[in-house]
Nucleic acid binder design. Structure first.
Length: 817
RNA sequence: GGGCGCAUAGCUCAGGGGUAGAGCACCCGCCUUACAAGCGGGAUGCCGGUGGUUCGAACCCACCUGCGCCCACCA
């Protein structure tokens, strides 16, 4: 509407665990990558029983099938909502182009040393059996229990240690106390023995040990939490893993458990889930006399994968990482500087970004041991014994992207060398979905695929998104822009809040309080839903409220009705017959050039033809409203813009329109009548455009009744359209003095309100006549009073009017029925 | 534990040193040739608390309380 071409793309993020899980539940299958592809496979129809194992390719085909269905449903909602995206730009994060772009970006990260493979402890979801990134972790308060267990000094004296994870006792590698903790000063440097397993572990000092927690001395295990990892690394301790990737205790004990009794004890735990092992070992400790107290129930926060159901474990595995500044001061400082360059709306959202960047604990883990995603585009050569040489990955040719290392052979190999000594192995993993989504500017602009489109568009203007994904979508996109192109990906970030349920709770699938928009769209209409949504300011959550939907629906209907009245009046002189209601007569309007003419739309009277004071006053007020709306939108305050337009519109309907109705019908002759009709049309042409971004359907409908082209590509209104005289106040008048027009408006509204009040108080119809209206006003208000008196008299059905001099600040009205 | 935000009518929210606002809900009316899916009128408040700055504070400052969120911790 402001004469610019907007690139407003749309894409579906279809990768990831939610899709896989939905496919498993929907089709009752699970993926087993060891199985061969079955071309004739069709998903089982039965609802009961176990999930049927199918090949990876069969599984991802089902993922495609289901996301197709889901995306059709989403598209229907977005289209119905009137989302003004350019559907021709639509991409999917799993399509060929996106996979090629995502893999290319990864390979460039790799070439620059930003991506690397490492074997290290990482967060592990035991249900999905995949590594996850720090950004996907959330903590949940769960029930646990503290156990105080006795380690033993050489002489047998107990050293009580408190733990909520006794099942990790066989994984214990040390005890730590704070270096300043005098209780343990003598013990530090000695060794103690673990109960049940009889493993000798050193007692060490580390500043992260908190004297206030438990007994002040902590068990270091492989690995119970991130502190354990820190201690393991800082104190150069051995690793004694006991938890498998399925979350169960490994079949064999760590080699450090050498005693027969220790190995027997471990055998009782082998194969248990962590939870089961916890109970069992507590009983074993109690039996052996090593449980000094507990289990005592506590509630404590535990880390979960955000889409998971079991607590995260920390497991050592080989994974791909992308450097994110966690271990690189310069990169971190660069990313913080990008955050400062970005214009945040609202500004305080920047803090969340800074908190996140400053709190990064490790590089970005991007490999996922999953199936439906963009494959990591590398293979590994196998040595003579068939072992992968991870240090020498084989990379695809750039022109071959996208590749699937699980199906395609690498350059220089044939398919039958897969898994053979001297042959190759494909990397089995896919990338974190954010590794692709973080390239959304590149995906939308078809980076490396479509000429220089990206160069024209990038950096972009704006990222609209909600606040909970600042640490993922926003941060990762900034990271990719920073490392790949050395730029901030966009100038502005418009950060929205959430839609809360009517009880102000966050909508959540597991809680079951999710309200999807389709019902509201059907019941109240798209404009009403948009009206309600537009009431949410950036950064603020909005509460789902059917009452507000009714208000929006009422507003849309009101626009329809008011427009019917205005357009039903005789069209302006010289326009008759050309643009009457339902006319739609073709008019040459720069069709074909692809550009809109600026200025007032066709068929709209010019402000200069409008002579009656009340009409001029209304338009003067509207000029101010145009300015208000424009400034608000420029300032990312869409709610302020809507409120300003709405407030004016109700004044326009309730006061102005009622005041001039009779005159518009011609009751006071042709000149004053034409002024009213012109003013009504002019105002309507502006009102429709001010509302167009919020209520696209009703405004487009009304616009189409008397205008060519779409209201959504009509020129955004400017104040000059309705107030052609640049100085509304006559020369010589001191600034700040209300114009005659403004004063007239105040008088007219005041007078009609007094008349309505009198009729309402008398409980009579608004059509009842007013016998006498007495206006008491100061001399300098008289001009304003006289200017609008005829309209007031007509609207109020006033039979006699008296003007009396007075000294009140504002004119006063006395109504006699 | 660190940080950010919020607190104004029964509800949802504007306002941002000078008389406290809107919509919804509520109450009372009105068939009024755009609209009864409508219109008009009305009542509704220690502006979270305590101090300070100021001639004057809902507004600025400090502290506090409550709520929400982000981050950290998780013995």
């Amino acid at each position: 509407m402001r004469g610019k071409c907007v690139f407003y793309p749309i894409g579906w993020d279809d990768n990831g665990l939610p899709t896989e899980r939905r496919v498993q539940n929907y089709y009752h299958v699970r993926c087993d990558p060891a199985l061969p592809y079955d071309p004739g496979f069709s998903p089982p129809a039965s609802n009961g029983g176990e999930q049927r194992p199918i090949s990876r390719r069969n599984f991802t085909e089902l993922c495609h099938r289901l996301t197709d269905l889901d995306e059709q449903a989403f598209e229907e909602v977005w289209r119905r909502l009137g989302l003004s995206v350019d559907w021709s730009t639509m991409y999917r994060t799993i399509d060929d182009s996106s996979r090629a772009i995502s893999q290319r970006a990864f390979l460039r990260n790799l070439a620059r040393g930003e991506a690397y493979l490492a074997e290290a402890p990482s967060l592990w979801d035991v249900t999905f059996q995949t590594a996850v990134a720090q950004a996907e972790v959330e903590d949940r308060e769960v029930a646990g229990a503290t156990h105080t267990i006795a380690f033993r000094r050489p002489g047998g004296e107990p050293v009580p240690v408190v733990t909520t994870r006794p099942e990790l006792l066989p994984a214990c590698v040390a005890l730590v106390a704070h270096p300043g903790d005098e209780r343990y000063a003598a013990l530090t440097g000695t060794a103690v023995h673990s109960p049940l397993f009889g493993v000798e572990v050193p007692v060490l000092a580390h500043h992260l040990a908190d004297p206030a927690k438990g007994t002040g001395i902590a068990m270091v295990c492989t690995f119970g939490d991130s502190n354990d990892v820190t201690w393991w690394r800082d104190l150069q301790l051995p690793a004694r893993p006991v938890l498998g990737r399925d979350g169960r205790l490994l079949a064999s004990p760590p080699a450090a458990i050498t005693s027969r009794a220790g190995r027997v004890a471990y055998r009782q735990l082998a194969g248990d889930t962590a939870q089961a092992a916890r109970k069992r070992i507590a009983a074993m400790l109690r039996a052996s006399g090593d449980l000094l107290s507990g289990p005592d129930p506590v509630r404590h926060a535990v880390n979960f994968y955000e889409k998971g159901t079991q607590p995260l474990e920390i497991v050592t595995s080989r994974q791909w990482y992308i450097r994110n500044g966690a271990h690189d001061e310069r990169l971190r400082a660069g990313l913080l500087a990008r955050g400062e360059q970005l214009d945040w709306h609202p500004p305080h959202m920047r803090v969340r970004y800074e908190n996140w960047v400053n709190g990064l604990a490790g590089d970005w883990l991007i490999s996922r041991q999953r199936f439906f995603g963009v494959p990591i585009p590398v293979w590994y050569p196998l040595d003579g014994e068939g072992k992968p040489r991870y240090g020498a990955p084989i990379l695809p040719a750039d022109g071959a992207l996208p590749v699937d290392p699980a199906a395609d052979p690498p350059p220089g190999y044939t398919a039958d060398q897969r898994g053979q000594p001297g042959g190759f192995a494909g990397d089995p993993d896919v990338m974190d979905t954010w590794a692709t989504s973080s390239l959304s500017p590149q995906l939308a602009a078809r980076w490396t695929l479509d000429g220089d489109l990206l160069d024209q568009l990038y950096p972009m203007d704006q990222r609209p998104q909600a606040h909970e994904i600042i640490r993922t979508w926003l941060f990762y996109t900034v990271l990719r822009g920073h490392t790949e192109a050395g730029v901030l990906p966009w100038r502005h970030a418009a950060i929205s809040g959430w839609v809360l349920d009517p009880d102000r709770k966050k909508m959540s699938k597991s809680v079951g309080n999710v309200v999807t928009p389709m019902d509201s769209l059907r019941k109240y209409g798209s404009d009403a839903v948009r009206y309600w949504a537009a009431g949410g300011r950036l950064g603020a959550d909005v509460t789902f409220d059917p009452a507000q939907l009714r208000v929006g629906r009422r507003l849309a209907i009101k626009i329809l009705n008011a427009s019917r009245f205005v357009l039903g009046l005789a069209p302006p002189e010289g326009d008759r017959g050309d643009h009457g209601e339902g006319g739609g007569g073709a008019r040459p309007r720069d069709e074909g050039t692809g550009r809109r003419p600026a200025g007032v739309p066709g068929g709209v009277p010019r402000a200069s033809t409008i002579s009656e004071p009340l009409d001029v006053a209304m338009l003067e007020r509207l000029a101010g409203v145009i300015g208000q709306c424009t400034r608000a939108l420029d300032d990312y305050d869409h709610t302020g813009a809507l409120m300003a337009a709405e407030e004016f519109f109700w004044f326009f309907c309730d006061d102005y329109l009622e005041l001039v109705k009779g005159r518009a019908y011609g009751e006071r002759g042709e000149g004053p009548g034409a002024s009213a009709r012109d003013a009504l049309r002019l105002a309507l042409a502006v009102i429709l455009r001010l509302f167009a971004p919020f209520l696209p359907f009703v405004t487009a409908e009304v616009w189409s009744r008397w205008q060519d082209g779409s209201v959504h590509t009509a020129a955004w209104p400017v104040p000059e359209e309705v107030a052609p005289a640049p100085a509304a106040s006559p020369a010589g008048e001191p600034p700040g003095t209300p114009s005659l027009a403004a004063a007239s408006l105040a008088v007219a509204s005041g007078a009609i309100a007094a008349i309505r009040g009198a009729k309402s108080g008398a409980r009579v119809s608004m059509r009842a006549p007013v016998r006498t209206l007495v206006v008491t006003a100061r001399q300098d208000h008289l001009d304003a009073v006289l200017a609008v008196l005829p309209d007031v008299q007509a609207a109020g059905r006033v039979e006699h009017t008296e003007l009396r001099p007075g000294d009140q600040a504002e004119p006063a009205y006395q109504v006699t029925l």
